[in-house]
Design a protein around this nucleic acid. Structure first.
Lengths: 121, 121
DNA sequence: CCATTATTTTAATATTATTGGAAATATGAA
DNA sequence: TTCATATTTCCAATAATATTAAAATAATGG
C-alpha cells in the first residue's frame, strides 16, 4: 500500500458521518446494507449520504452492488487489514517486545504478524 | 473510545506529512525521535512540523518529552490499538468467519480478539 | 548577560471539504 | 407509458485545514 492510498483511506474515515457509515457496514458483514437503510439509521439527507458513500468507495473502503432498486454497500475487509498493516509497518524496528511493554494485550497486533500472536494462557 | 476521539485520531493520520511522521515514530519505538530529526528526515519547515506534531499530540497519537534542548516525540501504541479495536468493533455481528472468508490471514485481527487468533499451522 | 540552537506561536492566504435543495437518473410496478 | 421509489449529480454557500514567513519562547554554553 502506498502512502497516498493510506492517506486517502484514513481521510475517508476521518469524518463522523462516514465513520458511522463504515462501522455500520463492518458490523453488517459482507452482505452489506442498502443506502436508504443507512440514511434512515443515521438520519442524513440523501445527497449528503451519497456524497459520503462515494468518498468511502473512492478510498476503496467499501464496495457496492445493485439489487433491484436498492444499492447495497459493504465494507471491504481486505482494505481495512491493509491499512492496519501499513500503520504498524516495521513497528519498533521489528522488535515487538518494545511496544509490548506498553500494553501486552491489544498492542500484540501492532507488531506481531497475526500468525505469530500467541493465544493468552 | 468515543467516536469523536476516533475521528480526531483518524483525521490526524489522514495527511501525508503527519502520517509520515507517525510512521517514523512507530518504527522508532518508545524512545522516540527529536522534532529536529523528524524535520530533517522529511524536509519540512519547522513551523509546519510543529503544527503537525501538535495535531498528532492533540489527537493522543504521540507523546513528547523534553531532553536538554531537544523534544522527543514517540508514538502512543495504546491509542493505535484502541483505534483498531474501535474500527473493527462487533465486526460481522461477532461472527468473524464471515470476514475470514474474504481473506484468511490479515483479516483475522479484524474480527478475532488477539487472544483467540490461532497460529497458522 | 548574550549568542546560539530548538521549537512553537501568530497571522495571513490558499486550498479543500461539508452540506442540503433541486433536478436528474434508474429501476420496478401498475 | 405513467407513477413511485431509490439513489446520484449539480450547485452554491459555508466551514475547516494546510502552509509558510516572521516573531516569540525556551534551554544551554560561553
Amino acid at each position: 500500500m502506498k502512502i497516498r492510498e493510506a492517506v486517502s483511506a484514513l481521510a475517508a474515515l476521518a469524518q463522523e458521518t462516514r465513520l458511522s457509515i463504515y462501522r455500520i457496514l463492518v458490523q453488517a458483514g459482507p452482505e452489506g446494507v442498502s443506502a436508504g437503510r443507512i440514511g434512515e439509521e443515521l438520519e442524513v439527507a440523501p445527497a449528503t449520504l451519497s456524497f459520503h458513500l462515494k468518498e468511502l468507495s473512492h478510498a476503496g473502503l467499501v464496495s457496492s452492488r445493485q439489487e433491484g432498486r436498492f444499492i447495497y454497500y459493504s465494507a471491504n475487509f481486505e482494505r481495512m487489514a491493509a491499512i492496519m498493516t501499513f500503520l504498524t509497518h516495521n513497528c519498533c524496528q521489528g522488535m515487538p517486545q518494545e511496544c509490548l511493554t506498553v500494553n501486552d494485550t491489544q498492542v500484540a497486533s501492532c507488531c506481531v504478524p497475526n500468525s505469530q500472536v500467541k493465544p493468552k494462557s
